[in-house]
Design a protein around this nucleic acid. Sequence first.
DNA 1: GTTCTAGAAC
DNA 2: GTTCTAGAAC
Length: 601
Amino acid sequence: MLQKKELPKLSEGFSRIMFCHNDAEIQDAVKTYSSLEPFDDLPRGCFGQRSHEAKVQVGIMKFLKKADAPSSGRTPKVDRVQRHLSPQSSDKKDQSSERKDGGLGLINFSEKEEMGSKETAACSSSNDIPTLAFPSISTADFQFNLDKASDIIVEKVEECLGKLGNARLVLVDLSHGSKILSLVKAKAEKKNIDSSKFFTFVGNIVHLFTKGGLRCSVIANAANWRLKPGGGGVNAAIFNAAGADFEAATKDRAKSLQPGHAVVVPLPSTSPLHIREGVTHVIHVLGPNMNPQRPNCLGNDYNEGCKLLCKAYSSLFDGFMSILNKQENIIPEPSKMLPGSDCGPDGSNQNFDQKNKRDGEFLSENSKKSRSSQNDARVEEANKDNERTGAKGWGSWAHALYQIAMHPERHKDDTFEVSEDVVVIKDVYPKAQRHLLVLARTENLDRLSDVRQEHLDLLRRMHAVGLKWAEKLLQEDDASLVFRLGYHSVPSMRQLHLHVISQDFNSPHLKNKKHWNSFNTAFFRDSVDVIEEVSSKGKATIKGDEGLLSMELRCHRCRSAHPNIPRLKSHITNCKAAFPAALLQNGRLVHRPGEVGTVKP
DNA sequence: GTTCTAGAAC
DNA sequence: GTTCTAGAAC
């Protein structure tokens, strides 16, 4: 058996390397590939046939046991092979024996798993053969039963191999005595699975090429559901090795992952894993969790667990095949997915983007089919509504205001005022003591970015109605209130609506940063400014950058910063500072004389 | 738009 | 330990 030795970097001249593990294999290989000769320009131990003409070349790599560091009592067979093949290589042996192992790292090939015929290298490496290296899913931290898992791996691999063409699958485990590898190996052998298409390999999945000589264009990551770095094992190793660009690329593809699902992430060319290891894609895959100490534990429900693990491998292999078919760009561009979608001029549409990110997961065909029919029906209904009204890209929940605006008679209890062009309602989830909405009743006018010069009269009318109600509330309700009238740059609900909101922001419904910032950053467009902009430029300025909604929390009066919503809310109940000058101009604030502009006692 | 909840932050 | 955030799901 070979001993732990460094593995030299492979020459471009090799497209196939054979690792031999015992005398019989070496003899077989030498017999089969009689023209083999040592390569002068490769580290000692590399033998093979030059690839000037032949498409497939074969080499025998042997790595010498360091003369001064025997780690087992067994004779290093490589000496005999080298003698057998060329005396020249014997001479080189001494030089390389002096070489240190550091730098390239160690891999114990004596424990490399291999399967199938000896003629076909269990671990052949080629830059040409697309290879997916994957760890065993769910069997480490998620404590999935190894016997059941190995059955599933072999079953799913067998299913996939038929569709793979010349591509290969490699099950990788770091541990030399890996039980899952030996189980899978045994079961795959029993099923006569072609060992040139599927084999197991002991090594670090982020160093397969540089330390193992195994070129894998795609590697799978046993991800966590948040698709975040950290944790341990394969996930931490891959995120560490792939660098920040990969983290960003992942975030770009999907925000999270459900058990049984996978998502393909092309590895940025800047990623060290791409440059060093030649990995072009990482497929994140999440399996079922049987560990009670981890989220979403299935208890001992192996019915569900096995289903999910099957689904996970199907999704993973489907993802790999989509790469092979050059269909890895499974998340369509919004414009391609929904031609004519009416995104604002800034191109932003949070609902749409979010939906796309959710749908960006790579689902196996089966799991796509198994989506609940109830959910399908809801989505279908929303799609119909979108189609019917020409309003595409809105979530299924985003049509409520549209329904009220178009059919106020069906919502009599909720409406304050109905006229030909507007409807006034109370916001169902008011973010302040008084919070009304003035809805436009115009069709195909869903948001501020739809507004043009032709809507100026409507905008003025909406403003006048909003102002009327603010004044009414000041007069009849609470004279100390201060109102602000305006639009969200990118609304969450369709149908243009003007917010009339008191500036106390004293409401249990104001719960998060997005709520606060949507009314207290440039995301909120004052009605007076919108009218002025549409009048002068033909359209309103949209400040829909995501950044605005996640900005630090600042008091809208004194501009002090606060670490979280509870602290901010506690502050604003007491802050009596004058409003910032910008708000005091152009009638942006509506109030009784003397209520704003000065610091109160 | 809200609700739910894992896990980060404290 | 509790509080709070942020992302998915609806």
